[in-house]
Design a protein around this nucleic acid. Structure first.
Lengths: 232, 232
DNA sequence: CGCGGCTTTGATGTTCATCAAGTAAAGTGG
DNA sequence: CCACTTTACTTGATGAACATCAAAGCCGCG
């Protein structure tokens, strides 16, 4: 499925088009149409790999992906989660020739790749576009850093509560959802051990704060969960 | 001392001029000269304050500053250290109307403030400048995030070793230097408690890995220190 | 069916935060 | 200048939080 033409063919007509591209004129949009590739991948697929040369600008249209980093001691650390409309790998893009993280689909996903040099041309040729991109990248960094700083302040119960709230509000927008990642991945995302993730989830279930059924999680007591998220 | 004219007056002649400004033409450099203010402040001075409206683009010429965040529970967390040639507060700049962090001088410092709207004009009017700025901001974010992720993997001994190495190599470039921050500030920077910072510094001294004399730290055994930094 | 990976719970030891208490250094006011 | 207060630093003792080890159940997959 890699490299198929985008179903909606022209970027100008794309329902997923990001606000970042709003400033492009007709000619520039046509350039974009010709320079991009549409991709659909299954859950588990690697979209790009840490250490590989950056050749494209990746825009996630549908699905969900994790940003993964290999730690010096051979473990894996999840840097963050990419949701639809995100430019994944945006951070590495301008600061390095290689990807700092791998990007792996955690749900069936669709994304567009735009040729790296084309984006550079657009930046140089369209000031408003450059400004939009600056704002976008700045925003993404800010969220990532602030989230990390927040997590660092909390102990494990607070972190687990945080991640449940995150998926409920930021990703799915409901109090009941299918957790797209394993316990082990939660652990990698918030820097703790699998056993403790499990233990704390069990505690939350025991206290009737959440309900767990297979991979489905339902928040029963949002107030209490929020309290734990803030006060640890 | 706030608001004095830059001694070197014209930005075009400024010895501290960042590579980011390399692409500006004569007219644009003149704009810059007229739109900036030069400032010199003493150690401890607040350069900008978390929550205040962003009106300027701050470029640190001389000195050292800490980026500080007030945590929800009233403590302080140090996000990072700004060294000469850094654009401080760069991250907030494009993603928010207000500063996400306070910036406080930890050594006597000099910096230039450039009017916010002027920077925006330059971005829109000069594509190469926009691209340079994207690269710069991307680089700063990347370092900040990777540092944070690294710290999250380490236990306390590793973090203390990390921060000593950081000041030795990144900030001062020597194995013997004056630690510009207090024990408490180290704790705030690497998410631990003062008592443990002190305890671990004492251990390192006892094991002849470092020497401490007042605020001066000298690395005696770089190999061992590096080992601790990596392996906790 | 059996293997391997994910999940779960319990027991145990290590790491770290907290509390307490004392020393040194640095500012403050008379 | 000295008494006084405040702030930074330091060490020890204790308990809480967390990682690690161990073992068993579960599920998907060849």
């Amino acid at each position: 499925m890699i490299g198929d033409a985008c179903p909606g063919s022209k970027c100008a007509d794309c329902g997923f088009r990001s606000a970042v591209f709003a400033s492009l004129n007709t000619g520039q949009l046509e350039m974009l149409t010709n320079g991009k590739t549409f991709n659909a991948v299954k859950k588990g697929a690697t979209i790009c790999k840490q250490g590989d040369e950056i050749k494209a600008f990746i825009f996630l249209r549908v699905g969900l992906a994790k940003l993964v980093r290999n730690t010096p001691d051979g473990r894996e650390q999840i840097v963050g989660i990419a949701t639809p409309n995100d430019f994944v790998g945006l951070l590495s893009l301008f600061s390095s020739k290689i990807y700092q993280y791998s990007i792996i689909a955690i749900e069936d996903s669709e994304y567009c790749s735009v040729d790296y040099s084309m984006v550079m041309d657009l930046i140089r040729g369209n000031g408003i576009f450059a400004q939009s991109l600056l704002e976008k990248i700045s925003h993404v960094s800010d969220i990532l850093i602030n989230t990390r700083l927040d997590l660092d302040l909390r102990q494990l119960r607070g972190r687990v509560a945080f991640i449940i709230c995150y998926f409920a509000t930021e990703v799915y927008g409901t109090t009941k959802f299918n957790l797209p990642i394993s316990r082990k991945e939660i652990a990698e995302l918030i820097d703790m051990r699998v056993e403790n993730v499990v233990r704390i989830l069990s505690e939350l279930r025991r206290d009737n704060i959440i309900r767990i059924e297979g991979t489905t999680i339902e928040i029963l007591d949002p107030e209490k969960l929020k309290w734990i998220k803030v006060h640890g």
